[in-house]
Amino acid sequence: MLPRTLEPESMDDPAEAASYDDMNHSSVNIRFVDDLLAGGEIGNDILDLGTGTAQIPILLCERMPEVRIMALDAAASMLELAIYNIEIASAIERIQLMQGDAKAMDDFEDEMFDCVMCNSLIHHLPEPQPTFAEIHRLTAIGGRIFVRDLCRPDSETAVEALVAQYAADESEIAQQLFRQSLHAALTLDEVQQMVAAAGLPRDSVQMTSDRHWTLDVRKTTAHQEEAAS
Rank of each mutant, 00 (worst) to 15 (best):
I58A: 10
I95K: 07
Y166W: 14
I92E: 15
K103F: 03
F146Q: 01
A168G: 10
P57I: 00
V33S: 02
Q99I: 04
D101A: 04
K219E: 01
H183I: 03
L186K: 07
P130A: 08
G143Y: 05
E109F: 01
I30Y: 08
Y84H: 11
M1V: 02
L79R: 02
H124Q: 09
S209N: 06
A38G: 14
I30E: 06
E134F: 08
V67R: 02
R144C: 01
A54K: 00
E225Y: 13
S120E: 09
M98N: 01
S10C: 14
Q175D: 05
D106G: 08
P65S: 11
P57W: 01
Q99M: 06
H183W: 12
D107I: 10
F132G: 11
N24S: 14
C115A: 15
L36K: 12
R68T: 03
R68Q: 12
G52C: 10
I86C: 00
E66R: 11
A74N: 09
G50D: 05
P153M: 07
H212C: 11
N85I: 06
I88C: 01
E109V: 01
E93D: 15
A38F: 02
D13K: 07
E160P: 09
E7S: 13
L59P: 11
Y84E: 12
S204N: 12
